[in-house]
Amino acid sequence: MLMARLATRTAKPNGQCYISPEKVDEYLLPLPIKTVPGIGHVLEKKLKKKGVQNCGQLRMFPKEALQRDFRTKTGEMLWNYSRGVDNRLVGVIQDGR
């Protein structure tokens, strides 16, 4: 789900973008943290205080440190998303007509 959302943002306004599994690291490492879904202004500010500007820098923190500093759920999300890991399924929203 994460990579699909990021690819969609990259492809706007009317293009297409496919990020192959082999290219996930290449795509994510320089990606600014503010681009990652789930990182709002407050979390971005806290991460920047720790010197984190992009996903590559975020990856340098152990999961346990992120969970300690940002709570368990948020820390795990940060750790996973910086690695392109998101186990949510991409689904189709059905029209109620």
Rank of each mutant, 00 (worst) to 15 (best):
M1T: 09
L2Y: 10
L6W: 10
A7E: 06
T8D: 06
T10M: 09
N14H: 13
G15C: 04
G15T: 08
G15P: 13
G15Q: 11
Y18D: 07
I19Q: 11
S20E: 08
S20M: 07
E22V: 07
D25K: 07
L28A: 09
L31Q: 05
P32Q: 03
K34H: 08
T35S: 09
G38K: 11
G38Y: 07
I39E: 05
H41A: 00
H41F: 02
L43E: 13
E44C: 00
E44N: 01
K45E: 11
K50D: 07
G51Y: 13
V52G: 11
V52D: 04
Q53P: 09
N54M: 00
Q57M: 10
R59K: 13
F61Q: 07
K63G: 05
E64A: 13
A65R: 05
A65W: 15
A65E: 13
Q67D: 02
Q67G: 03
R68D: 15
R71W: 14
R71M: 14
K73W: 14
G75A: 01
L78P: 12
W79I: 07
G84P: 02
V85G: 01
N87K: 10
N87C: 01
L89D: 10
G91D: 15
V92C: 08
I93M: 12
D95Q: 11
G96Q: 15
R97E: 12
